[in-house]
């Protein structure tokens, strides 16, 4: 493993540890969705996102992962002890008017890509620099607004827009495969005028290569289909629907933290 990747692995481990503590303390849901996004978020915040770039977490239910990555990567943001606490600053879904660093408030699925397309369009008109990265979930792609935005971004040639799909295969009450199979995603995005790359969403090398290559093709929005595992990092969580909802019990924390150390 190259030295840089080893550093990122460490950051990912730190992030997951923080997430265990955050979710356990606050008793909040969506730790599985947060865990599947960790490598993607760590990659974005290490050498990908430039000052003029914008990041929108369209899968707003993974907000804790964004906060935890900010913390691990020593990037501003708000103190983690305010996460889902009375009077705190960090909501379960990101609120740009409450938490500094949040580009767009999300929480309901299917909103981030149209907003990102609007930012990308305005930037094109102003000939302004910067890429707009939007992280969406695979379940989110069932929203019609995603495809309205994809068609629109395609025909407007918004190559300053990049959509990353955290394809963890599990949505709130079903395997995503039973509703919108993964194999249908690439042809759909291609047909809508986007350029598509598929990567292992836990592999820092593949992520860096794909994210660094945005835009993939001039005049086309980039789509990165990142295959991930829901709950990645703790065997007990991995691929389990209930970890969309459960939070780690305090009594189990030590065991989970140890598991992270050993991997």
């Amino acid at each position: 493993m190259p030295f840089a990747e080893a550093g990122l692995e460490k950051l990912a481990r730190e992030t997951r540890k923080t997430l265990l503590l955050l979710h356990s303390r606050a008793g909040t849901s969506h730790i599985g969705s947060a865990f599947s996004s960790v490598e993607i978020l760590v990659s974005l915040h290490n050498g990908i996102l430039a000052k003029e770039d914008v990041f929108i977490l369209s899968k707003g239910h993974a907000a804790s992962a964004l906060y935890a990555v900010w913390d691990s990567c020593k990037i501003g943001g708000a103190p983690l002890d305010g996460y889902c606490r009375d009077g705190g600053v960090l909501h379960g879904h990101p609120d740009r008017l409450r938490c500094p660093g949040v580009a767009a408030s999300t929480g309901s699925l299917g909103h981030g890509i149209p907003i990102g397309a609007g930012i990308a369009f305005a930037r094109k008109r102003d000939a302004k620099k910067g890429r707009i990265f939007v992280l969406a979930s695979d379940g989110e792609l069932q929203e019609g607004s995603v495809w309205e935005a994809a068609a629109s971004a395609g025909r407007l040639g918004l190559d300053n827009l990049a959509v990353i799909v955290d394809a963890n295969g599990l949505q709130a009450f079903e395997h995503t495969e039973n509703i919108m199979p993964f194999s249908t995603l690439e042809p759909k995005f291609l047909a809508f005028g986007c350029a598509v790359e598929t990567v292992d969403g836990h592999d820092f090398g593949q992520l860096a290569k794909a994210l660094g290559a945005v835009p993939f093709a001039p005049g086309k929005p980039s789509v990165i289909l990142a295959k991930t595992v829901k709950g990645k990092g703790i065997k007990e969580f991995e691929g389990k629907l209930e970890w969309h909802y459960k939070s780690p019990a305090a009594a189990d924390l030590e065991r989970y933290l140890l598991e992270l150390e050993e991997t």
């Binding site: 149209p114 907003i115 397309a117 609007g118 930012i119 607004s145 309205e148 068609a151």
Partner: peptide, 15 residues
């Protein structure tokens, strides 16, 4: 495609 239109409007307002 009104949903996308409204979302884009919000994104443009952010800019």
């Amino acid at each position: 495609a009104e949903q996308n239109m409204l979302g884009m409007a919000a994104g443009m307002a952010l800019e």
